[in-house]
Each structure stands twice: as C-alpha cells, then as structure tokens.
Write a protein that binds this DNA or RNA. Structure first.
Lengths: 243, 243
DNA sequence: CACGCTCCATTGGTCATACCGTTAGCCGAT
DNA sequence: ATCGGCTAACGGTATGACCAATGGAGCGTG
C-alpha cells in the first residue's frame, strides 16, 4: 500500500466553506454599496425577503445586518416600511472607534495630538488657497459663539472649539481631509475637556488664536496661519502632557 | 370619568426599555473593558452562560457579541474552550472603517492624492527624528523587492509600492498616523494602478525615489526627504490628472 | 369634501429549541 | 511515548412562533 496516500499533495485540496455564512452576506452587501449599486437612502429587502434571496435563515441575515449597522454602512428602522437603509457615509462610527482605542490606551493622547498637528497644520495651505468668503464668515461666526459662551458660562465650550477645527478642515474643500479631521472630533473633545480641566483660564487665549487664524487665512498668509495653528495645537499638547 | 387622567404629567413617566436589549449588553461589556475589569486575553462566559446571566435568549447575546466583534473589542473562537475573548487593542478595525469611509464617499482620485500629500509629507519630520536602523533596513528591503519584481515582470508592483508608503508611516512610531496611512492602502492601490496604466515605464523612477527617500532619512535630512516625497507624490498626482 | 380616527399588514425584536461542525482534552491502543 | 479515536463544550445555523412598532389604507364624522 502506498505510504501517506492523502498527504503532501500540496494544492490539490482546498478548504471548503471557509468562515461564517453571515460574513459572505456582509461582503456581498458591502460590495454592492462600494460599486454604487446601492446608494445612500436605498432600502434593502426585508429580513424575511433576504432569507429567501440568500437561502439562509433569518438569524444569519440578522447577524449580517447587525455588523453592517455597527460598521455604519446601513441604518435599521423598525415598523412597516422599515428595514435596512443604506446610510449616508459618516465619520461617526470611525470617531467612536478612535475614542475606544484611546480609552483602551492603545493610542496615547499625545499620539492623537501629534497626528492632529500633522494633518491640521499642513492642510492650512489648502485652506488659504481655497477658503471662500462664506467659509470665513462661518469660522468667524463660530468664534463669536465661543466668545458668547465664554462670557456666559465663564469657561469656554470645548464643543465649539472642536467645531471650529472641523469647520476649518471643511474649508480645504477636500472631502477626504475633512472626513479625517472629523473622525477626530470625538476624541478631540475628550482631550479638550482634559486640557480645560488643567487650565480653565486658557479658553480666552484659544479663542484669540482662532480669530488670528481666521485673519491670517483671510490675508492669504499661509506661513503665518500655519505657525499660529502649530502653536495653538502645541499649547494644547503641552497642557495634556501636564495632566 | 376624569378626562385624560394619564397624560400631560410631564416628566413623571419615562419610557421603559429604550432601544434594543443587545445594545444594553454591548454597553455593559464595553464598560467593563474600559474600566479594565476585563483585560485583553480574558475569556467571557459562554453564550449559553451569558443567556442565564442576563436573562435573555441566546440570539440576543449573539447579536451583542457580533457587534463587539465588529468593533474589534472581542475575538470569537469556536470549539471547546472557545467563546468571546477580549481582544488586544488594535487599530485595524478603525482603519477598515476609515477605508470604508474613503471608498464610499465618492472621493475623487485627486482628493485622495492631495490628502496623501498632506499627511505623508508632513509626517516626514517625525520619521526622520525617530526611524531606527531596523526601520531603515526594512524600507530598503522593500525597495529591493520592488527592484526584483521590476526585473522579473517588467512592470513595477503597485502592491509593493503601497507597502513602502505604509511601512514608512510606521517609522513615525505613531500608531495613529500609521493607522491613517494604512487606511489609504486600498484607495492608494487603485490610484497607483490607474497611474501605472498611464505611464508603465515610470516604475523604475518611483523605486529610485523611494531609495533616495531612505537615504535622506538615514542622513537625517528632513527637508530633503520632505521635498523628495512631495515630488514623488506630485508626479503620481500628475499622471492621475492625465487619466 | 376634509379631517381625524381606527384597524391592519408589514417589518424588526425577541424567544425557545434543536441539530450540526469544530475544537480541545482525555484515554486507550499500539 | 506516540498516535489515534472518543467525548463534552461551544459556537453556527435553522425553524417556528409571538410581540412591538410603524405607516398607510379604509372608515366614519363633522
């Protein structure tokens, strides 16, 4: 008899049915969305309909939808005419993920701040080149709101500060850059709160820097604006380091 | 009979059981992990045990675990001694989320390239400051592999080129930056393939620029390295613009 | 005719049970 | 001592049922 008749045949045999069925469904839907065959707002068939379509049980379909929902790809509504709706691309779920990584100390606050400096400082040239009058007006508006909040509550709103930075990224008129910065919105809030706890009186200075930034951008002075942004972020980083 | 005896009592009554049951379980586990009461490697009770613990059905527990798995918080293994294991914090799932966001958002190739220039050029100072001998060795190794691939197939491997840029970001020794660049891997490949189609003979020049980059980093010349990177990316951007 | 109310079909949320495939660890045979 | 099979634990899937929420159709009333 031949020795080892079924082993060492290399590529002859390949594993059959790898992974979960729900995973196959997930990737199938994902592909459809990426190919644009499913666009935001489109309604997927009902769970029961999908069961028949894929030839699987409802449990399996539901697990796939759960993952797609957690990934932020679809939104699920209950009731008649409910079901899975392809969601508008949003950076929210990504932001939560980064926040998780922060709290799990897989990312340090300094790493996140450093990353912000990398991105936000070097996107300044884009902003200077492309910011329109309406962009500047909105930035100024946010600064005004910050001043109002400061006058009223005696401490500056970290929410508004984060909004300023997010809106500033939007002034680059580059959706990819804007989304990246927006992803840091949530984690950014946490850092700002920590920094505010360290030095609550710094709110005013932060607002002044925001205003100077807007002025520099309006004056098309990219170098000055970048320098202001660098100093602004470095100051926040410094306060975080103290804590 | 009293008219409307139970309405208009304002805050007296609050909705009971908001949202999904699985969501409650998710947040409970999430909290335990954030508080450190569950550490990476710890094994959660089996699904059936969790059913009894929470007083819910297995389906509900499974949906919670699915979401936690999709979020990258736990890893699920089958078989005896299997179950949900608290995962080592990793930026992979977040990176995938960013990649999804980028591919789904109808970004133009120019936006992606521009964003790469923003990030990859300005992370150069970090790399110059922190790259170690092993980092440089690995970068050189990738370049060698590129040359080998070029000699063999007569056209350069876009996969290796993307790997070079990803590894370069890793040299910043900042996990957040590395995660961002890595999430551009997929879209980056698409751009590179498009660029390669336009000018297939440019592979050699790209490799040379990679090597010059490594040299400049080894020489701690941040300005030169940044300039090389800028030119390198700009060239790719230019070829994309032609297409 | 217009407005509002009620009823109902649709659809997701949850449960209970059963069976299968996979896996690790144990135990016996060689 | 090693290899092989056995077994219990555990996740993966299927089935069928019922509940809760929701939107729209149909009916009734002014």
């Amino acid at each position: 008899m031949d020795a080892e008749p079924v082993s060492d045949h290399g590529e002859l045999f390949s594993p059959v049915s790898v992974g979960r069925i729900s995973q196959v469904i997930i990737e199938q839907v994902r592909l459809l969305i990426r190919q644009g065959k499913l666009k935001p707002g489109d309604r997927l068939p009902s769970e029961r309909a999908l069961c028949g379509r894929f030839g699987v049980s409802r449990v399996t379909v539901r697990e796939a939808l759960r993952v797609l929902e957690a990934t932020g790809l679809v939104e699920i509504r209950v009731g008649a005419r409910g079901g899975a709706i392809v969601a508008e691309p949003s950076s929210d779920s990504v932001g939560e993920g980064i926040a998780d990584l922060l709290t799990l100390s897989a990312l340090s606050a300094s790493e996140v701040t450093e990353t912000r400096m990398v991105i936000e400082v070097s996107l300044i040239p884009l902003v200077v080149a492309r910011a329109g009058a309406d962009d500047l007006a909105e930035l100024t508006e946010i600064c005004r709101a910050q001043e109002a909040a400061l006058a009223e509550n005696r401490h500056h709103s970290t929410e508004l500060s984060a909004a300023f930075h997010t809106r500033l990224a939007g002034c680059s008129h580059n959706a990819a850059v804007a989304m990246l910065v927006q992803s840091f919105h949530g984690p950014l809030l946490a850092s700002l709160d920590a920094a505010a706890a360290t030095a609550p009186e710094m709110g005013r200075r932060g607002i002044e820097e925001h205003l100077q930034l807007v002025e520099a951008i309006a004056a098309k002075d990219a170098d000055l604006a970048a320098e202001i942004m660098r100093a602004h972020l470095a100051r926040t980083a410094g306060r975080l380091a103290e804590a």
